[in-house]
Amino acid sequence: MSTLAAAASTTSTGEAVQFWVLGTVAVIGALATILMKKAVHSALSLAGTMIILAVFYLANGAYFLGVVQIVVYTGAIMMLFLFVVMLVGVTAADSLTETIKGQRWLAAGCGLGFGILLIAGIGNASLKNSEGLAKANAGGNVEGLAELIFTKYVFAFEITGALLITAAVGAMVLTHRERTERAKTQRERALLRIREGKQITPLPAPGVYARHNAVDIPGLLPDGSISEKTVSATLRGRGQIRDVSGTSLAELAALEQRSEEWLERGGDAEGGPTAQRTPSARNGTHPGGAGEARAEEEVK
């Protein structure tokens, strides 16, 4: 790549091809970042864009920055992003419908105007000649940077060091939670639960009929609908519940059919209507309590 970087006012064809291909991908990645519904997807798209930018840095003769871009940005910072995304729980997918009146139009107008002005500005600028970094990088890119950092920019460098330490301490202070009162004992928590009329017993466990015991599979109520309480709130929030009630009931119905066939009994069993109503009972917001009540009614 050093040969590419050394080029003067125009670049080699190889770099041009690389630019047009990777540049397109970078723009797509950027667009994906702002358009993806889920934060995780946005983060991944951004990581892709950043890696492409790292390639561009290398192509421009900034070898040190290219590596730093990959290691620090894509490696560390984007991972920090993903970590926080997981920590915060990513409550479902972001709705992309706009709530502030006129915001979308204003944003589009401003963005368009800004972009056009910026590009016009660049087009007007007298940047026709590119000198290339052959001379500057003669003693090695890293050595050249080091010389600048520790001479001309040493003060700024020290200041950024102070800034980083401050940031580290700040993050610690911000996220540290001071416990201001004594922790509640188990007994106190139980009493509180009863007083507030919350769930007294432990929550029911996930899993269905000993067929599935994964944590993302909710348990079924007697009427065949799922009980939201059986899965963790985070999974519920992300919409990552795996609903197997339909198949389970179908299998149950098949089992009953077979056993009836074996026992040669009459055709009309109670399983039919139960099986029919399961699809309607299967929706995310269905409250568990009401489902159970209806289930009792059904059982008689």
Binding site: L106, A107, C110, G111, G113, F114, L117, L118, A120, G121, N124
Partner: peptide
């Protein structure tokens, strides 16, 4: 803010 920036750029140009 963004609109203001755009206006500033326009003015500069």
């Amino acid at each position: 803010m963004f609109g203001g920036t755009a206006v500033l750029i326009a003015a500069t140009l």
